[in-house]
């Protein structure tokens, strides 16, 4: 179903795709951490970080603007930072009298607002690059190699597997509701808001029971193949020389970006 469109992985034979998933996870987190550490208004460093991102896009054979085009998921959240523009610290730039309240944007506030936005926007792009170049199961393996608790990674593996099955089921439920949401001329359609929420709740209950029973059947299928309570998996990843090299070379690159940011 169209749910597969959610899977952002793009298969290419690039150096970035071949990179060990552990290294990619560490680099992504390192990059986001580096963004968080850069002081507000270090535009040069932000630009350097973006160049690094563009270059990585190119290395992954995705085309320069690939992650850029997909990076607007976090944008609605920017509303939360708008109030930073009117920070009390800094010099006032203007005074907007809205009648009931006077808004005073400050230079500090504006720098802060755009710094937050840029940080967020760069970080989202790197996260997108990670899932575009890494199959999700490999990502799970990476977390296992990085000593994430086995219980959690296994739950996540199950979640990933059944996400598609259950969202399909949720869509079928919603389609069935849609198909019966008829209306007659002269009658008010759709019932009350409360009623609509209640129907949705019952659909959730229905979905819960189907999922619960499915987990029983899966458990049986696992028992039938020798499951004894401990999940075992084979992780075929081994760090190559090139993986170590990439890891070590990226550290000075991130340090350089920090340097640009702090000593401009």
């Amino acid at each position: 179903m169209h749910i597969h469109a959610f899977d952002q992985f793009r298969a290419h034979a690039s150096a970035l795709h071949r990179l060990d998933p552990r290294v990619k996870v560490l680099l992504t987190v390192g990059y986001i951490l580096s963004n968080a550490l850069l002081p507000d208004g270090s535009w040069l460093a932000f630009a350097a970080a973006w160049l690094l991102l563009l270059w990585s896009n190119e290395r992954a054979h995705l085309g320069l603007g690939y992650t850029f085009k997909r990076s607007f998921v976090a944008f609605p959240f920017a509303i939360a930072a708008i109030s930073a523009i009117f920070s009390p610290s800094g010099n006032s730039l203007a005074e907007w009298n809205l009648g009931f309240v006077t808004l005073v944007p400050t230079d500090f506030g504006v720098v802060r607002f755009f710094s937050i936005l840029v940080r967020s926007w760069l970080s989202v792009q790197m996260a997108i690059l990670l899932v575009t170049t890494t199959q999700f199961p490999d990502l799970i393996h990476a977390f296992e190699h990085l000593k994430a608790p086995r219980t959690l990674t296994t739950i996540i593996a199950f979640l990933y597997r059944y996400l598609f099955v259950l969202t399909d089921e949720a869509y079928r439920l919603m389609r069935a509701r849609e198909a019966r949401s008829a209306g007659l001329p002269g009658f008010k359609r759709g019932g009350s808001l409360f009623w609509r929420a209640k129907i949705t709740g019952e659909m959730a209950g229905q979905l819960f029971l189907r999922s619960y029973e499915r987990s029983d059947r899966i458990y049986n299928a696992m028992l039938a193949r020798g499951y004894t309570g401990h999940i075992r998996t084979l992780n075929p990843h081994t760090m190559q020389h090139s993986d170590w090299l990439t890891l070590f070379f990226s550290i000075p690159v991130l340090l350089l970006i920090q340097l640009i940011g702090w000593y401009r």
Binding site: Y162, S211, S215
Partner: peptide
């Protein structure tokens, strides 16, 4: 494990 995994998907 399977219970929590499928419940997460739920």
């Amino acid at each position: 494990i399977p219970l929590m995994g499928v419940m997460a998907a739920f």
